[in-house]
């Protein structure tokens, strides 16, 4: 006999949200493409939003839905800016590889290593 109480309650929503968050993180850490990294962050955003909506529904408070609404809008805005930045980065470097983004890394010269010029 299948126990249907798990699928009738709130736990299944948490499970779906955690699957979405996990897929986002896994995509972020395993792929080295800059465009896919932005997509992965959007997936994580969506999983967290689902958790907010679930808590809002089961705890009887509409503020969670309000937060989801604001979060979705801000995510859309940040996403557009991120895409423009990726496009400009590609125009500069002709590559979307994350591992190649080392411009801000501290470079220690041989003379500076001892604190001398």
């Amino acid at each position: 006999m299948i126990n249907y109480s798990f699928f009738a309650g709130e736990k299944v929503f948490y499970l779906i949200a955690s699957i979405i968050i996990l897929s986002g993180f896994y995509l972020l850490f395993t792929k080295k493409n800059l465009l896919l990294a932005i997509l992965a962050l959007e997936i994580v955003f969506n999983g967290i939003n689902l958790m907010f909506a679930t808590v809002s529904f089961y705890y009887g408070d509409l503020t969670g839905q309000m937060i989801v609404l604001l979060s979705l809008s801000v995510a859309a805005a940040s996403f557009a800016i991120g895409l423009i930045l990726v496009l400009n980065y590609y125009r500069l470097k002709r590559s979307l590889n994350i591992e190649g983004m080392t411009e801000l890394r501290e470079r220690i010269e041989d003379g500076d290593r001892d604190g001398n010029d």
Binding site: L39, E42, N46, S56, F57, Q65, L72, A76, L83
Partner: peptide
């Protein structure tokens, strides 16, 4: 979201994500 009783979020999710963001992504 519809199962969570928030029709407005469902419409927002489909319009914003499926309609706007991902189409822009595919264009990119």
């Amino acid at each position: 979201y519809l199962f969570l009783g928030s029709e407005f979020l469902m419409a927002f999710q489909i319009i914003v994500y499926a309609g706007a963001i991902l189409v822009m992504f595919l264009f990119f």
